[in-house]
Amino acid sequence: MRLGMVIDLKRCMACYGCQMSCKTEHGTPPGIFFARVLKREEGTYPSNRMIFLPVLCNHCEDAPCVDVCPTEASHYAEHGIVDIDHDKCVGCHSCMVACPYTNRYFRDEKQHYFGAAGPTPYEVARSDRHPEGVVMKCNFCRPRLAEGKLPACVDNCAALARTFGDLDDPNSAVSRLIKERGGFTLHPEAGTGPNVYYLAP
């Protein structure tokens, strides 16, 4: 089984629901976004439009972050998920400069959204558990998957733009979408074999 995600850019309306639900689920500290949405204006008036591109860790089959990690903290977990063992991470940042998708973040110190006011009860409950001095990233919500749930960004996508499933199963929804609608990956030239696919806008 190889878990992967398909994001339909025709459906995505850049509501930031994925970004917010991810932040809520993981309680990621300020400056750390396991999922985010890129917006870019393309063309010139009157033929201009906004392009939306939701991004997250691509859980590559040949992940450069795993190769360069000196401590094996970045590793392949079950079903092709790329995860970080925070107890092994030394915080050398080499995985961050190796990831062509720039979806890794370094947590250098304890930080809160409201500065001098101190942490909110939510931050105490959710954010403070994250260790400092390590790199963080999306892990396809492994704890949710273990409970039989979908990743938070998939479950909370209001436009149903995200589909999650087994890329090795030719009959799965993700495989069919990729085949029928010509799914593509970002930076295929990097040769990393991403498991996150996109459908053209």
Binding site: D67, V68, C69, K88, C89, G133
Partner: peptide, 25 residues
């Protein structure tokens, strides 16, 4: 001093097969 967790530096020898940072260490 640059590392986030210098106390774990010995673990950097672990992945010398593919990591140049590990080989450097």
């Amino acid at each position: 001093a640059f590392l986030g967790h210098p106390e774990r530096a010995v673990g950097m020898m672990r992945h010398w097969r593919t990591s140049w940072v590990s080989r450097g260490f």
